[in-house]
Design a binder for these strands. Structure first.
Length: 228
DNA sequence: CCCTGATTCGC
DNA sequence: GCGAATCAGG
């Protein structure tokens, strides 16, 4: 498969709305999870809560250095029995501090102690940003000139009834599977007194038939094997 | 072991 | 540019 505009677009949207690389991969089909990640990075979509440490910059690494050496060794295995490897490539030039102490940073009168901290923000299934209680909002002095609009979470679930849209009047029948980018709920007007619309009440509630006259139950919204 | 994303590197 | 292989954390 090739990366057509449509596929790239879908990848981008799903990635930005928080779908995992695996979900994106099998949603697109014909590509592996790695392909999706690779493409995402090439598109500049990078940076998402990654398991791997953003560890040290250079040098002072045992594990990674070993891993890299391993790769390098594997790559250069066929030849080069063991050329003179320079073990210490002089990692750090050692910051030659002359007179000014490095701790003093005079040219920063900012009262804000955390100017550009990485600030961990997780993305919910719908693409909304989760915030901790402590970080209501970054101290943004310039007041937004325009009024805030309820920000559509993502194009994937636009016009769909999300979990947050559920109330006593709309049908709660799940459409699709939880975790999928377009998972949503039926959202039809409910059959009064029931949590589902008329159609889905028919699926949720089966008339109790006499023994022996039972019909095989219809597929449940959950529990059944995922069909693709 | 399963999952996750990041990175590397041969193609 | 692509993606398998590999790594590392959860």
């Amino acid at each position: 498969m090739s990366w057509t505009d449509e596929r790239i677009s879908k990848l981008t949207k799903m990635w930005e709305s928080g779908a995992t690389a695996s979900q994106i991969a099998d949603e697109l089909g014909g590509v592996s999870r790695n392909a999706v990640i690779g493409k995402a990075h090439r598109l500049g979509l990078k940076s998402r809560p990654s398991p791997v440490k953003p560890n040290e910059t250079p040098a002072a690494k045992t594990g990674k250095a070993a891993a890299q050496a391993k790769l390098a060794a594997k790559a250069a295995k066929p030849k080069a029995p063991a050329p003179k490897v320079v073990p210490a490539p002089a990692p750090r030039p050692a910051p030659a501090v002359t007179g000014a102490p490095a701790s003093a940073v005079p040219s920063q009168p900012l009262p804000n102690p955390t100017p550009d901290m990485p600030k961990i923000v997780s993305v919910g299934p719908g693409g909304f940003l989760r915030q901790g209680p402590g970080d209501q909002q970054a101290p943004i002095p310039p007041a937004p000139p325009r009024r805030l609009v309820p920000a559509k979470p993502s194009p994937e679930i636009a016009d769909k009834t999300s979990l947050l849209d559920l109330n006593d009047r709309v049908c709660r029948w799940p459409m699709g599977h939880p975790g999928e980018a377009d998972f949503h709920f039926c959202g039809e007007k409910v059959n009064p007194g029931f949590p589902y619309c008329v159609e889905h009440c028919g699926r949720a509630y089966q008339a109790q038939l006499p023994r022996g006259a039972r019909r095989p139950p219809p597929p449940l919204p959950f529990g059944g094997p995922r069909v693709r």
